[in-house]
Nucleic acid binder design. Structure first.
Lengths: 149, 149
DNA sequence: AATGAAAACCCCTCTTT
DNA sequence: AAAGAGGGGTTTTCATT
């Protein structure tokens, strides 16, 4: 997949502000709005553009504890089953099958530490095959960005 | 901060598709576009809505290796300095100061394992105060979502 | 790959309820 | 908190180059 300088300007703009008017980007790069449209269709068709989202700040709704949890499984064969359970837990916002110590590595968003403890004890630990977990609480997140175009 | 059912519908729509027309949301909830606008201004002023972004799929540009790296620091006092260096590394897309084993925990996006090795050896390990790192490569990410509204 | 034109639609604000 | 109206800009498509 090859993208040129104009594609980069389009992407940079929309990755920063998904509601940036196509026409204002058109004026910035010096081509017509129709051409930007055509390029956006191309970028969507290629799969590079996956979608767009509004970003919310969880803290404003009281979700102040972000944590990473490494999960040990009894047998690797239970991954699929465990994943199905994890998907049902709203607090789990990322899940990865990883190399290294853990079998599964998840990112969890909770209101506070007590809420996190509930999720760990009542939900995660209750999943069949989960033998042990290790938790890292994020005290300060200073970088949060996407691929640099 | 209190949000009602209408706010939730607005947020759910825009969190899924940041370019969803305000007027189509208005029709869905059965109030005027002006009212949606007013609510959006309120949600922005409260800080709940932080912004919007286009989401890109890094794999399409050849970035196929996602990894988490736990970083050990010699002395906690070097956190600020280390963070400054981390911000300069484009491949570092998240950075957290964490409880537990590590001092800093980062998420890294690379083209491949070789690229990851370069970033680890030539960039991360070169940061003053970094004594050791532990790497977890994500082989399969199956959950990636925001706070459930 | 880009253009200009055109119709439909939407954004946004203001005033009023 | 919401409605209605209105001007002006934007989206989107199409034929054309």
């Amino acid at each position: 997949m090859h993208i040129d300088g104009i594609d980069k300007i389009i992407l940079k703009n929309l990755m920063e502000d998904a509601r940036a008017p196509i026409l204002s980007i058109a004026r910035e790069v010096g081509i017509s709005g129709a051409a930007i449209h055509q390029r956006l269709r191309k970028l969507e068709k290629s799969g590079l553009i996956v979608g767009s989202k509004f970003v919310v700040n969880p803290k404003v709704l009281g979700f102040k504890t972000l944590a990473f949890v490494g999960i040990f499984l009894d047998a690797a064969s239970t991954y699929k089953e465990a994943l199905k359970r994890l998907k049902e837990i709203d607090e789990v916002i990322e899940s990865h099958y990883t190399t290294g110590n853990y079998a599964i590595f998840v990112k969890i968003l909770c209101k506070d530490n007590e809420h996190l403890m509930q999720v760990l004890n009542k939900q995660i630990q209750g999943i069949k095959g989960v033998s042990r977990t290790e938790t890292f609480i994020s005290l300060d997140q200073q970088i949060d960005r996407q691929l640099k175009i």
